[in-house]
Amino acid sequence: MNYHISKEPIVIQEVIDKVIERNAGAITTFIGTVREMTKGKKTLFLIYEAYVPMAIKKLEQIGSEIKERWPDAETAITHRVGKLEITDIAVVIAVSTPHRNDAYEANRYAIERIKEIVPIWKKEHWEDGETWVGNQLETVPYPTGKPIEVDSND
């Protein structure tokens, strides 16, 4: 099971072990962690919520998209849900490929797609309140009802 939503802390090595391959010459890991300061605002903790069955399907879809672009890649993704403290791990993505460049590119592709199509939400608990991240300014409307490309710097 390479695609997983976890209520428990993520064990990085377990995600890496899923993509170990005799023909791999590179494994990249992306580890997303909970940041304390965002544009001068202090986060106390986060709550992640997921539409679990669909989130798993969408993670699997990302794996298929990676296979189309990098046929020799193996991908594993685990995303955490529940309450996370500052520095806790929210997501781990491991990608193995025969050569390093593909492993970096495919891993980057995976995190960008997670931010576009996987139904997972983060509630920020700030010092002075709480907000569901994603539309507090309604800057990310979906006029067609389906995902569109988003800014990749968040």
């Binding site: 997921a50 995303h79 997670i114 931010k115 996987v118 139904p119 997972i120 939400w121 994603g134 979906y142």
Partner: peptide, 8 residues
Amino acid sequence: FIPPVSGG
């Protein structure tokens, strides 16, 4: 109904 997602 899926509000703008914010995983990762």
